[in-house]
Structures are given as structure tokens and as C-alpha cells.
């Protein structure tokens, strides 16, 4: 399985955010996207997830166990927002996403209890999501990645609001995912503690857009 992006560029309104980004990641590899604020990391990830249209270029999953029409179908996306309902308990949230996502062919997600244990928060899954602290909420959002299998993880600032121990825990989760043949793409400022990863440096066009046009 390989994720291939060719000549990706994206605009927001009139401004060109990035241009001609190409990379290739094989199963079991991770790509860390780095760059200053506003350099287009989040935009790149949203383009890959299919949430923003690309101005040009394509991103495809090749040799996947199940052919996908849109790359997003094979991806988990962990954005800035946790996509969990404050009014529902953690259990209800995770059980809903597990059921709604369904497993991508090729592997299976773990059950809800096991996912909660994996992020180190066993025993509080009966609480409403809104009662948890910011760090706990983030960890529960990570548990969401485990309940259903998706070969590609797209992570936007995954470790924001996390303490050091939780960062290590999360690096472990990503390594386990890579070990199962998955792909991870993460945008981050902090070192994620992953070894042997590719790096993509975004420079950003802020202020240069006019000369490009």
C-alpha cells in the first residue's frame, strides 16, 4: 500500500497557500509535516482528507486492500476539534463512531473498552465527554482512531494539550499503527518521539502570493 501525492497545491480564496507538494509514503511509514504557523500544514492535511478541494494535483492510495474512490474514505482525521459530543458519555461517543465508521477492509478496530484502556483512561468512560479535562478529551479523541480500522491516519497537531506522558503514549499508538502496516501523516511543532519518519517542510507563501500570480 502506498500513498502518493503529486503536485498538490491549494488556495484559500485568492491566496495560494502551497504549491507543487509531492511525496510518497509506503505502508508502515510516517510523514511529519513541519513549518511555521500559517505555512499551510492544516490546509495540506484537509486537502488530503478530501475536506478541501485541491487547486491542482492528486493524492491517491495505491495498492490498497480495497480500492477507494476518495482518499478520505481510507483515512482517520484528527483535527483541532475532537468530534465528540459533550452531552454524551465517552462510551456512547466511541460506540457511535465505531458503529458509524465501520472497519476498512484489511484489519479490524479494537472494542471501546480496550481503546479507552489504550489511551490510559480506563474507568472514566461512563462520564459525559464534557466533564473531562482538555487533555483527557484529546486522549479520548485519540481512542476514536483505535475503534475502527483505517489504514491512513491524518493528524493535525495531535498532541496539543497533552502532558509529556501522554505524548509518549501517543507515539506508542502511532508506532503500533505503523507496525500493522498503516500510514500516518502528522502536522506538528513538537517532536512526536517517532523514529525513522520522513519529514516534509512547509515554507508557506504568506506575502508572496502576488508574485506567484
Amino acid at each position: 500500500m502506498r500513498l502518493v501525492a503529486e503536485g498538490l497545491s491549494a488556495t484559500r480564496g485568492e491566496d495560494l497557500i502551497f504549491q507543487d507538494i509531492s511525496f510518497e509514503i509506503a505502508g508502515g511509514e510516517a510523514l511529519v509535516v513541519k513549518g511555521p504557523n500559517g505555512s499551510g500544514k492544516s490546509t495540506l492535511l484537509r486537502v488530503l482528507a478530501g475536506l478541501l478541494p485541491a487547486e491542482s494535483g492528486t493524492a491517491k492510495l495505491l495498492a490498497a486492500p480495497h480500492p477507494v474512490e476518495r482518499l478520505g474514505e481510507a483515512c482517520h482525521y484528527l483535527g483541532h476539534r475532537n468530534a465528540m459530543k459533550r452531552e454524551l458519555t465517552v462510551d456512547e461517543n466511541l460506540a457511535f463512531w465505531k458503529d458509524f465508521f465501520g472497519d476498512f477492509p484489511g484489519d479490524a478496530g479494537v472494542d471501546v473498552d480496550e481503546a479507552v484502556e489504550s489511551v490510559g483512561l480506563g474507568g472514566i468512560a461512563h462520564l459525559p465527554f464534557g466533564y473531562l479535562s482538555a487533555g483527557q478529551q484529546r486522549r479520548m479523541a485519540m481512542a476514536k482512531l483505535l475503534v475502527a480500522w483505517r489504514p491512513v491516519w491524518i493528524l493535525d497537531e495531535p498532541t496539543a494539550a497533552l502532558d509529556v506522558a501522554a505524548e509518549t503514549m501517543f507515539a506508542g499508538l502511532v508506532m503500533a499503527h505503523l507496525g500493522r502496516g498503516g500510514i500516518a501523516i502528522a502536522a506538528t511543532h513538537q517532536p512526536l518521539g517517532l523514529d525513522g519518519v520522513k519529514e516534509l517542510r512547509m515554507t508557506g507563501f504568506a506575502g508572496v502570493a502576488e508574485t506567484v500570480w
Binding site: 482528507a49 478530501g50 475536506l51 477507494v68 476518495r70 478520505g72 474514505e73 483515512c75 482525521y77 483535527g79 483541532h80 476539534r81 475532537n82 468530534a83 465528540m84 459530543k85 459533550r86 463512531w97 458509524f100 465508521f101
Partner: peptide, 14 residues
């Protein structure tokens, strides 16, 4: 949309 669930609803094969 506010809690980010909409992104995930949009991405699915469904």
C-alpha cells in the same frame, strides 16, 4: 460542525 463531527461525516464512504 462546531465540534468537528461534520468533517468525519463528510469523509465516510457512506
Amino acid at each position: 460542525r462546531e465540534d468537528g463531527s461534520l468533517d468525519l461525516l463528510l469523509m465516510q464512504e457512506t
